[in-house]
Each structure stands twice: as C-alpha cells, then as structure tokens.
Amino acid sequence: MTEVVLETHALTMRYGGVTATKNVDFKLYAYELRCLIGPNGAGKSTFFKCISGLETPTDGEILMLGSETTFWTAHQIASLGVGIKTQVPNVMDGLTVFENIWLAARRQHNTPEANRKTEEILDRLTLRDIAHRHVGHLAHGERQHVELGLVAVGDPKIVLLDEPAAGMSSKDIEQMTKIIHELNKAAAIIIVEHDMQFIQSIANRVTVFHRGEILIEDHVDRVMSDPTVRNVYLGKKS
C-alpha cells in the first residue's frame, strides 16, 4: 500500500469571497478505502468536486495515477480510470438499466465486449430482474445500485463515491457495502459520507474536514473517539 494514486498539494477552492477548501494536502494509496467526513459546509464535497473534475480549483495541484489533473475536465479524469458516483443518483432516467450500464461499458470496449461486460455487471450487482426497466421508474436504492454499476463496469483504478448510502434502507446498505468491498479489491476508494454507522462498518482510515481544512486523518476508531472531532462534528464538547 505504498503507491500513491491520488495526491493534492495546497488545494484551494474559493467561491467569490468564500473559501470552501483551504490548502488541502491529501494522499490516497493504491487499494485503500478512505472516508471523508465532516459537518455540513466542511468542504468535503467541494474537495470531491475538485478531484473529480466537476470544479476547477482556484489554487493548488492534483496528481492522479501519475498525471497532473488540476485543470482536467470530468471526462478526461474519468478516461484516466476514475469511476465517479455523485451524491444524487446521476443516471439516464429515460433509458433502461441495461442501456445505462452498456453506455458505461461502451466507452472502453467495442460493442460485443460492452454487451458481455454489461451482462456480467447485471449479474454481479443482482440487477438482472430490472435490466429492462427504465431507470426513472426505479426506487432510490435501485437507482443508487445502477449508478454503482456504471462505475463498476469501467474497471476503475480509483473510485470516488459521494454519499453512496444516502436515503437507502439497511438492506440496501448491506448490499452496497458488499459491492464497495468487492470494488476495493481492484481500486482505491474515496467515500464522502455522513452515516457514521456505515463509515464504521466500511472504513479503515478516515479524513475529517473542518472549515475547508483537514482536521485529522487516522484510523476510524481513533477518529471517532477523538474529542476534537466529536466537538466539531457533533457540535458539542465531550
């Protein structure tokens, strides 16, 4: 776990007069699963958007899989082998589950191979029964799974997940956890999450954001018991 796959140096993002992230130095190692937590407005989502190419940072540098990606757009970063799942399920509502996953597979493979990969993901993510239903007609949890399917079919080297467990039932979360662990066998993963129970069940190392900066970075148990974290995260003194 020594190879660094994602690195930021003094990453800063300002929206007008508001500094959302300030001088963030961050490292993610190969096959690591890292959770980013913090209260609302801590800057974790802005950090996520910067590294995924959805926003261009005001200052600083991003290095990803050996390339400098600071000013890259989302499609260039995705082409590098980065799978991105956004906070709200970001899928093609007017298309079927099969078509959604096929489009994700087609970017890297020719048509017969894309068909094969799509079939494989439908089985792996137990989406076979809903393969020919329009995604717009599915429940929230199913849509989250479909979006994870879009990420998984690309065989990514880095996976960025923004609140994957948001609005899901405990059964769906359980299945989601399994899928994430499976993805983690082949990729480093960053998860931005609020659900502490989910974080404890899935993460090893956790990075806590506070007021746009990294407050602490440590093992999940030590972070949870840290009085400073409890203070800023729960809004009360321990």
């Binding site: 995924s52 959805l54 757009t73 989302a74 499609h75 995705a78 082409s79 991105i84 956004t86 970001n90 899928v91 093609m92 509502d93 007017g94 298309l95 078509e99 096929w102 489009l103 994700a104 087609r106 970017r107 890297q108 048509t111 879009l150 690309g154």
Partner: peptide
C-alpha cells in the same frame, strides 16, 4: 450505431456521460 446511442445518453444526462469519460 454506438455514436447514436451515446448521443441519446448525452440527451438524457450530460453530466453522467461526462463522468463516464465521454467528451460530450
């Protein structure tokens, strides 16, 4: 063709198609 099907994907959700690596 794949080009047409990708175009429909772009019509449905530009951001997602961009996040999949397509230069929309």
């Amino acid at each position: 063709s794949s080009f047409g099907r990708i175009a429909v994907g772009i019509r449905e959700n530009e951001t997602r198609m961009s996040l999949l690596g397509y230069d929309i």
